[in-house]
């Protein structure tokens, strides 16, 4: 059997070298190295709690082998915004009261961020397709949708001002 090797990942802008076995998932090596903001849910690709942005695409980190992610750029919910400088999505989720238990939220922010990067003015239907891999058992999604619409509006207005 092959043994562990060092893989290179740029996580939230910081270059890391992490030891990973062939059977290590991206989720495991992120959490084992302090990135516990990435949540472990179903480990089957159903719930989306472990979603991260890998080279611009939202993926389930539980279904991504660490070796295959070698050399990639990873963004977690912490890389999207901080408490001091939150992303408009994070602000809108707080303002709209979109969070109950909160476990699914890191993955939902990730999926919503990728959506808004591609589509600055999504319809409910666009949001439904983008969030189709994220399960939330608390909220019923209504306030999650209103927060995404609100963040999209804030970002569009910001883009207009800056443009």
């Amino acid at each position: 059997m092959e043994t562990s090797k060092a893989i290179k990942l740029k996580v939230n802008g910081k270059q890391l070298e992490l030891l990973a076995a062939p059977n290590s998932t991206l989720l495991e090596i992120l959490r084992n190295n302090g990135h516990v903001e990435v949540k472990c849910g179903c480990e089957k690709g159903d719930c989306g709690a472990c979603a991260v942005i890998l080279d611009g695409e939202a993926v389930d980190s539980c279904l991504t082998l660490a070796w295959i992610a070698d050399g990639s750029e990873v963004q977690t919910v912490k890389g999207i915004g901080t408490e001091a400088t939150p992303h408009p999505l994070q602000t809108a989720f707080i303002e709209e009261g979109s969070v109950q238990c909160g476990y699914c939220i890191p993955g939902i922010i990730v999926a919503a961020k990728v959506l808004l990067d591609e589509n600055p003015d999504p319809t409910d239907s666009d949001i439904r397709v983008a969030l189709s891999g994220n399960l939330c058992r608390c909220t019923g999604y209504t306030r999650i949708f209103s927060a995404i619409h609100k963040a999209a509006q804030v970002m569009r207005e910001g883009a207009q001002k800056n443009g």
Binding site: G45, V59, A111, G133, N134
Partner: peptide
């Protein structure tokens, strides 16, 4: 392809 699984699975 649109009805397939969820968004993150579709990306992989």
């Amino acid at each position: 392809a649109t009805a397939f699984a969820g968004h993150m699975v579709r990306c992989t």
